[in-house]
Design a protein around this nucleic acid. Structure first.
Length: 619
RNA sequence: GCCUCUAUAGCUUAACGGAUAAAGCAACGGUCUUCUAAACCGUCGAUCUAGGUUCGAUUCCUAGUAGAGGCACCA
């Protein structure tokens, strides 16, 4: 937000250096990193080091850097009109850095007015003319949605919101796994023992399928000390299951009908979970629908001599990726596209799906939010796409996330050792309601449940976003549902407090919650008074929002936005305690502060939205 | 055997190669007749080891240690 001054100053520095034969290095600008200070800064270490390399000077680099900074400072003073630079109140040369401090009133007004004029669009990036597809949320059907699935969903949705807000045309895609042995296992036990006994509720039924899966796995798994009768029974079951798989594959109508019905139960539950997360998928891909195309592309890849066909010798179709890329050291190794029995694999389907994304959806960038344990597979897929000749292969990105385990060990669906998302969600609401009754008195009865959902989910979502995506998480429900400190509710609470001040002030908030705001009825802001350090820190944080959006989107890192949102809320809470807005006597100052609160509220709202966290009006 | 990721305070986590390594939890001490104490203020406390590159390294490179994960017919 300080680019205008920055460019002006940078030009002057360049002129000065070329006139004085100083080999200026590229200037990197950053905010002055001290609390309560504001302005922007750059250093001259690089430049001094350049100079030393040419053999000039001979002074230590830090000392020379400081000299240059001082000379630049003097020059800026001289060339400025009346000894001051427009928009800059003070220039310091310290320890090799050049610090330029803002003129308080000018800068504060610029930031606040900009926010109020832009409203929900504050921070939105310019249109990028590129289409991005974010693929996330790929649970298997015939299981239930657990806390690990919640991580990809939250990460993927936040990433989608970030790139969309940063200016990319964005497509959200889900890719449920609706076939395979696990699916057939559930269908087998359902058909044999439980047909017609399913419960009615959407979530109850989804969870019931998981119970069936656990039970079926137990029946089909080889146990120690089996009696001969048990062995015979188990093997008979297994034959039945394999027979069912075969029938499914050949399109047997009876088996297909069981598949369609049970699959739909899972998808209903999934859709309801996504509704809770406020996720609106644009595209649904299903493994079962990609399968036919996957078989076709195998032939295409063989014809193009990318894949090696070993079927004539009774083998599979494989891709010797390293060899085809001309690599001597092993990196991507070799992988199978088609089993000897003619069936496809995960990789094959992913390649087919990529083709659909590129050719039917004209995707320029393709982001995969997928478990880090599949890094190798994703790299193999991207390498093959490149061999295949898709230029978009360069812009495929695997956003890996560490896996979510429990304090007692890894989650295991087949053993039934999972934490279901719905259970955590229900528990979250229960806990919020308990806190609500003791902490907040002014929530209308009709709103309590809804606000409890917003806060409970806010806590859960933030706990998943505040850890870098490639780190593993040990899921602890007490940590995930904490409402104190660095949490979702902390940020929501800052929003609520801002809202509360504005409501009591009886001042209209014209720009808030509108896409394009008009002028506030207080007119343009006027910060022509001595600001407290808390006000400065808050304005400073607000002004960083646009660049944070850009950084988080460019680096595909939701964490960057999560960290920022906390810092912003923290600045607001400190301001809230130190400065009493409504009791400010001077009307001019009071109005300026009200506008600052409006701007803070708007920025917190925008940040929360990007994090897929709701902003309640009261709590 | 090869490859990838991780290592920061008692615990959970931050930190474009730059100024004083930042928070939360826990512990201890303060702050509600003042816009909501789901908050604020303060104290205590950390870069795995050894080299290297650099004016400058938590950050980059090499080696080691410890942990997690992956390596062709599972997904």
């Amino acid at each position: 937000m300080f680019t205008k001054e920055q460019q002006l100053i940078e030009a002057k520095i360049k002129t000065f250096c070329s006139a004085n034969d100083i080999p200026l290095a590229e200037l990197k600008w950053q905010p002055i990193p001290f609390s309560g200070e504001w302005g922007f800064a750059t250093s001259f270490f690089q430049t001094a080091a350049n100079e030393a390399r040419t053999g000039k000077g001979g002074k230590p680099v830090p000392q020379r850097a400081q000299e240059i900074a001082e000379q630049v400072k003097a020059t800026l003073r001289l060339t400025a009109q009346g000894g001051s630079v427009d928009g800059i109140s003070r220039i310091d040369a310290v320890k090799g850095y050049l610090n330029l401090y803002f003129s308080t009133a000018t800068y504060a007004s610029r930031v606040v007015d900009e926010v109020l004029a832009s409203g929900l669009d504050f921070g939105r990036g310019a249109k990028k003319n590129e289409r991005v597809m974010v693929e996330y949320c790929q649970p298997n059907t015939h299981h239930s949605f657990h806390i690990g699935h919640a991580r990809t969903t939250v990460l993927g949705e936040t990433l989608a919101r970030l790139v969309e807000f940063a200016g990319f045309e964005t497509i959200r895609a889900s890719y449920p796994g609706d076939l395979g042995l696990g699916v057939i296992t559930v269908m087998w036990i359902y058909d044999k023992f439980y047909k017609g006994q399913e419960p009615h509720g959407v979530h109850e039924r989804g969870q019931w399928l998981l119970k069936l899966y656990v039970e079926a796995t137990a029946l089909l798994e080889k146990k120690e000390n089996e009696t001969p009768e048990e062995t015979v029974k188990r093997e008979t079951y297994d034959v039945e299951r394999r027979e069912m798989y075969r029938k499914w594959d050949s399109g047997d109508e009876y088996v297909r009908e069981i598949w369609r019905v049970t699959r739909e139960w899972s998808l209903e539950e999934l859709r309801d979970v996504l509704r809770m997360f406020d996720v609106k998928m644009d595209v649904w891909f299903y493994e079962s629908e990609v399968d036919d195309l996957a078989k076709e592309i195998v032939e295409e890849l063989v014809a193009k001599d990318i894949a090696t066909d070993e079927r004539p010798n009774g083998g599979a179709v494989i891709v010797k990726i390293d060899e085809k890329l001309g690599l001597t050291k092993e990196k991507y190794r070799t992988n199978v596209l088609l089993r000897s029995d003619g069936t496809t694999l995960y990789l094959t389907k992913d390649l087919a799906l990529a083709k659909i994304k590129f050719e039917q959806y004209h995707v320029d960038r393709s982001i995969y939010v997928v478990d880090v344990r599949q890094s190798m597979h994703m790299q193999q897929a991207f390498a093959i796409l490149k061999l295949w000749g898709f230029p978009q292969a360069e812009k495929c990105y695997h956003l890996g996330y560490g896996f979510v385990s429990l304090p007692e060990g890894a989650m295991s669906a087949r053993r039934g050792r999972v934490v279901l998302f719905k259970d955590v969600y229900d528990e979250a609401i229960k806990r919020v309601l308990a806190v609500e009754s003791e902490r907040s008195g002014n929530i209308p009865e009709s709103e309590r449940e809804k606000i409890a959902q917003q806060i409970g989910l806010g806590a859960l979502v933030y706990s998943m976003l505040s850890v870098d995506n490639n780190k593993d998480i040990v899921f602890d429900i007490n940590e995930a549902l904490s409402f104190d400190g660095r949490t979702g509710p902390y940020i929501q609470n800052a929003y609520v407090r801002a809202n509360s001040i504005l409501k009591k002030s009886k001042v209209e908030e014209p720009a808030l919650s509108k896409s394009k705001g008009q002028k506030s009825d207080l007119g343009p802001s006027n910060f022509d008074y001595e600001l407290t350090k808390h006000e400065i820190e808050l304005i400073e944080q607000i002004s960083r929002f646009p660049q944070t959006v850009e950084q988080a989107a460019n680096e595909y890192r939701p964490l960057v936005m999560a960290a920022y949102a906390y810092d912003l809320a923290n600045a607001f809470h400190s301001f809230y305690h130190a400065v009493n807005v409504l009791q400010t006597e001077d009307e001019k100052i009071r109005n300026a502060r009200l506008q600052l609160v409006m701007a803070a509220k708007q920025t917190i709202e925008n940040a929360l939205r990007l994090l897929d966290i709701q902003a309640p009006e009261v709590m």
